[in-house]
Nucleic acid binder design. Sequence first.
DNA 1: CAGCATCCGCTATGATACTG
DNA 2: CAGTATCATAGCGGATGCTG
Lengths: 121, 121
Amino acid sequence: MRGNVLDPNCPTRKVLDRVADKWSVLVLILLADGPLRFSQLKRQIGGISQKMLTQTLRKLERDGLVNRTVTPTVPITVEYSMTPLGRSLAGAVGAIRTWAETNFDHIVTAQQTYDTSAQAG
Amino acid sequence: MRGNVLDPNCPTRKVLDRVADKWSVLVLILLADGPLRFSQLKRQIGGISQKMLTQTLRKLERDGLVNRTVTPTVPITVEYSMTPLGRSLAGAVGAIRTWAETNFDHIVTAQQTYDTSAQAG
DNA sequence: CAGCATCCGCTATGATACTG
DNA sequence: CAGTATCATAGCGGATGCTG
């Protein structure tokens, strides 16, 4: 059996919603390179709030995409890493990242063209 | 020059926001298979409202990812198709779609495990 | 058919303060 | 360090009605 993202009742949609989340994408991108601690993630993802990072990590953990490892040091140490499932997704997500970083200038140009043409005013 | 999605001030982030939009992803998936009219898109994307579809298509058009072609029939006919830029993105998006549709059951299972383990109650 | 304008509730997100 | 809890708010997105 295979899901269908076009069906609003298909669980696939939920998955897509998760994947189609800005913060999730960024976390997956970072963890793809190796495990990171909470504060490291927060520092590297510009603009994310502590609340959103926690929320995102919980969701990813619940989905079985990310592992959460607690080391009872003082103060406590928590490390996040990819599960095999998460790693399998990371490839596709990485492609999005690469695309965004290499084509954003085309988009910016297209927007300027659009805004200054007939549509404007 | 290449962007950096981790920088909140980089335009790449805007691109990511667009890509990380549920409706945009679904529209791109459908248009990747060929041009479609407004009502066809609306019918095929379960759960989307007319407002959201219009909004999504405008954004995609502005970003230079989608072409909008008006044929002055009666009643009017509007066809949406992919631009080359959009097509280049569709590949990456398609990978996400495939992943979602093939792995959603793993995620559902992971969620159940998570919900019924120590985290619950 | 394709789309715009309006009203409006919901919830997603950010800011802030507190804990172990 | 790694969270949890609470509050306030912007804007997403649905429902409805109108147009060419």
